[in-house]
């Protein structure tokens, strides 16, 4: 899809969405869910489902931005955990240094949420920038660069925590993790707002247009006088940002964080991005469909959980969905060309 086509589809062309196969997949999952389980459409389950959708959707949004530039970011899941760990560690340190009476008792942490969130996000974005510099300026293949980051971040996460979990307490976390506004969990509302802003950024700003151009043909973009390297760094920084926001949402729900969490979530994010129509080769993709894909994905996984399918099979399902989505995207691309 080109920028102009995306633009013409922007006023949420209802007919276009109705034709979207993902929507129909979602509808069928919900129908099957409602038919097989009385709990599926309960308020609690739907909220639970939306919280999950927000988490994986935030990761997938960051992943999509990087995929659009023709790169991949495998470090997001590690980054999301690591950034929040650093948030905790640094906030606790600041508390000690400045003698603020934040309580850190054992591994239980009650600190300033503002400092915690700010430090986490700065950490996540910084890691994204480092990835971006490695990819754009040092010309390390993004796959390798972010695989190295993934490993390093996991390792450093263990070092910073000794492998033990941190427990978090405080109103803000309760609110971010559990609160519901007008029937919608706060984290999901946050997800929608961020998707809306980022969608605008990608489709209606010059920077966004260039990210698509880089993914479509990097040389031609460079030869049009565009400083492609900076934009690649920007994409990775945004991916780091979204990873951290996902990490905050995740931490707020669990009320704890530890180094070993969220293993393999990067693959989930890739799967959702691809189901949402983001091309692995770069250059195309719309965040609205990624949002839809995230909800669909969460709805499907939720259904498997309700049926009592063990986690290992769920992982298998994620893998199968990823392969299927990539194959179908290829098929669709071929039939268009």
């Amino acid at each position: 899809m080109t920028i102009a086509e995306r633009a013409s589809a922007r006023p949420l062309a209802v007919s276009g969405i109705l034709k979207d196969p993902i929507l129909w997949l979602l509808v069928s999952i919900v129908i099957v869910g409602a038919a097989t389980s009385p709990h599926y459409l309960s308020e609690l389950n739907i909220q639970n489902l939306l919280r999950n959708a927000a988490l994986v959707g935030l990761l997938a949004t960051g992943m999509s931005i990087v995929l659009i530039t023709g790169r991949i970011d495998l470090s997001i899941a590690a980054n999301m955990v690591f950034a929040t760990i650093i948030g905790v560690v640094v906030t606790a340190w600041i508390g000690r240094e400045f003698d603020v009476r934040w309580i850190v008792r054992g591994n239980t942490f009650v600190g300033s949420p503002v400092v915690f969130i700010a430090v986490s996000i700065m950490t996540g974005v910084a890691i994204g920038i480092v990835n971006g510099i490695g990819v754009a300026y040092l010309k390390v293949a993004s796959f390798i660069m972010t695989l190295v980051s993934l490993t390093a971040l996991r390792g450093m996460g263990y070092l910073a925590t000794n492998g033990a979990p941190f427990y978090l307490k405080g109103e803000t976390f309760n609110w971010l993790g559990d609160a519901v506004l007008l029937g919608v969990p706060v984290s999901f509302a946050l997800f929608i707002i961020l998707v809306a802003v980022t969608h605008f950024f990608l489709t209606c700003t010059t920077t966004g247009g260039r990210l698509y151009a880089i993914g479509g043909n990097e040389t031609a973009t460079l030869y049009s006088g565009i400083k492609t390297k900076r934009y690649i760094v920007t994409a990775f920084a945004l991916s780091g940002f979204f990873a951290t926001v996902a990490g905050l949402v995740f931490t707020a729900r669990l009320k704890s964080v530890e180094a070993a969490l969220a293993q393999g979530y990067e693959l989930t994010a890739i799967a959702i991005a691809v189901i949402g129509g983001v091309a692995l080769g770069g250059g195309t993709g719309s965040l609205w469909r990624v949002l839809l894909a995230a909800v669909t994905f969460a709805a499907g996984l939720n259904l498997l959980a309700i049926w009592g399918v063990p986690t290992w099979y769920q992982n298998l399902a994620i893998g199968a969905v990823l392969v299927l989505a990539v194959a179908m995207a290829r098929f669709q691309y071929k039939s268009q060309h």
Partner: peptide, 21 residues
């Protein structure tokens, strides 16, 4: 094809590549 245009992008976007700013 490989250095002058983004083939998957439309004409308007391609023509404005050098002037987008």
């Amino acid at each position: 094809k490989n250095e002058g245009l983004v083939l998957d992008m439309n004409i308007a976007d391609n023509a404005s590549m050098a002037t987008l700013g």
